[in-house]
Nucleic acid binder design. Sequence first.
DNA 1: ACTACGAGACTTTTT
DNA 2: GTCTCGTAGT
Length: 719
Amino acid sequence: MTQPFLAGLNPEQLEAATLPHQSALILAGAGSGKTRVLTTRIAHLIQTGQASPAGILAVTFTNKAAKEMLTRLGAMLPINTRGMWIGTFHGLCNRLLRAHHREAGLPALFQILDSADQLGAIKRLLKALNVDDEKYPPKQLQHFINNTKDQGLRAKDVEAHDPYTRKQQELFAAYDEQCQREGVVDFAELLLRSYELLSRDASLRAHYQSRFRHILVDEFQDTNRLQYLWLKQLAGPDAAVFAVGDDDQSIYAFRGARVGNMQDFERDFGVDKVIKLEQNYRSHGNILDAANALIAHNRGRLGKNLWTAESTGEPIRLYEAANDQEEAQFIVDEAKALKREGIEFAHIALLYRSNAQSRVLEHALFNAGIPYRVHGGLRFFERQEIKHALAYLRLIGNTDDDGALLRVINFPARGIGARSLEQLQEIARQNQSSLWQAAKSGQLGGKAGTSIGSFLELIRAMQDTCEGLPLPEQIEHMLAQSGLLAHYQAEKDGADRVDNLNELVNAAVGFVNEIEDDSLVAFLTHAALEAGEHQAGEGSDALQLMTVHAAKGLEFHAVFLSGLEEGLFPHDNARNEADGVEEERRLMYVAITRARRRLYLSLAQSRMLHGQFRYGLASRFLNEIPENLLKRINPAPKAYYAPEKTTWAPQPTPAGSPAAYSRDSSSPWHVGQNVAHAKFGSGVIVNCEGSGADARVQVKFRNAGVKWLALEYAKLTPA
DNA sequence: ACTACGAGACTTTTT
DNA sequence: GTCTCGTAGT
């Protein structure tokens, strides 16, 4: 039997992919071909007859990773991957719970709450119980609930030694009851429920244990306690668990990931095979050397050293700017230069530690006319208008979904105000029923009773209309009947929202074509579990902007890593946490190893953050990269930057360029000067740089925004 | 029922 | 600086 897909693997990759039936831990460094090994192993198991497609369970963290795996697998083997259990932890748990909803104590059509829905549910709970949300902030309670569940624990399992924790515990229990009553399940609950189901039901457990004799886990370092427990329940005595991970890339401890699971795994699963994938196929030598040197400062690593067959390549460029705007300008200029060298913008990434940093970069890119795409941000299914539409769909499926009902009972406005709702909620409380049941009971009189009654009729009418229709048509009718579409069409800035609502119909068409299940619940589940990147600018040649977290798993020809200052990276908040700095260092390691050929590191001596100036020292991580790998690029002499109406603090003069921040007296233009431009109108100079033919000024126009202008060409007049 | 204004947040985030 | 949220006012 030929297995062409095994060709080209290095010895370690080959060994891992063809390992006999036993549990194993694969330490896969950045860029070492981990996804390839995972998919190749699955293909190998199937083709050699060691496993049938149905006998394999492969679990990832993101939908993207799961999709990637399925695509690659489909290319290797002529099999239908559809029935295979390859997916995210949440996706697989959902599948399990749908199949055994009765045993799990859930309604057949249970809905999934995303984080925002969950927060809403908690706020509602606090209000119903008359709890002071100042004393028990909803966000904090949400955190408490999710954290506890992620440990595999329920409210009753919490050890409360103080009144405050006891109250949280009590609210946690009440929250779970509320969810149960409404037939909804949050993300953590998906996992906890299916874990409890497997632990409780021996025959069900035996069934799945004998079915899945091969379990493969991606990004093992990111698993939390509960996910680990879940895996342990699913893995029977003859299961071989193939865990792939990299302790150096563990950057999600803040949300419960436990690197310790890797050591536990070796012990609990009797692992005697640990394979290290250390050959990196991505980066040039200098970049890897920098990454290795940096990560060596962490203690308690499992130990791994990346190497490459590639040449050393270019040095890592380090740039220290006077301020954040200058840093952004440097990045813009270099990106342009790279583009001239033939590197596409799409292969260049601008990375930062926190989202707040993107604004200055975007601003500079916008002024330079460079196309860019920001990753992360509002997802399609999280938009307000989409949430509203989904709430109607949820109500069609399950009228007891109080969260959904409250969201749309008065949207578009139907004269059901806060007062009517309070009455309704009071009745529901007394009857121990859902809001829908309360409304139906006829205990509401007067105007409130009538308007709420007609809302009930509206939903019932929708249910009737939708009965038996294909999903996309159901959505179209709902949009019209609910008045949502009309509402946004009438709104003056509603065009985008209308587009999105129509896009929702398209999404349903795509969904129905792709998935065999075209039920409403399946679509709603899809919406909750795959909020979707679904953003503009895809496919075009645009610079890629994202946080370092979001860059994990990706690679780029050139990477700019900005904001390398103490307090930002490592972040201030990380310094107080146990092992906080080590996690930040791993984050830095992830950032560095994204670069294939060229890496820029930059920092600013001062930057605007949260509305005020902040002066940071160079990040400690810069000192952990050997000097011989670095090439320092010195800033060209610049005029100082003085923000309008801000008390300007003198900036430290960097060594080696004493004149860098003094005013250029030879230029007739200066910061703060009022000027006029033929096309853009009047404005004020906010920045100057260069001299002679290269002289440029940045002008903030009253009506035309902020623009950089070359003095040689732009006709500016003092005003 | 809609708007406007002030207060407070604000690391990272997938599901 | 900018966004969200909640409340008070029209």
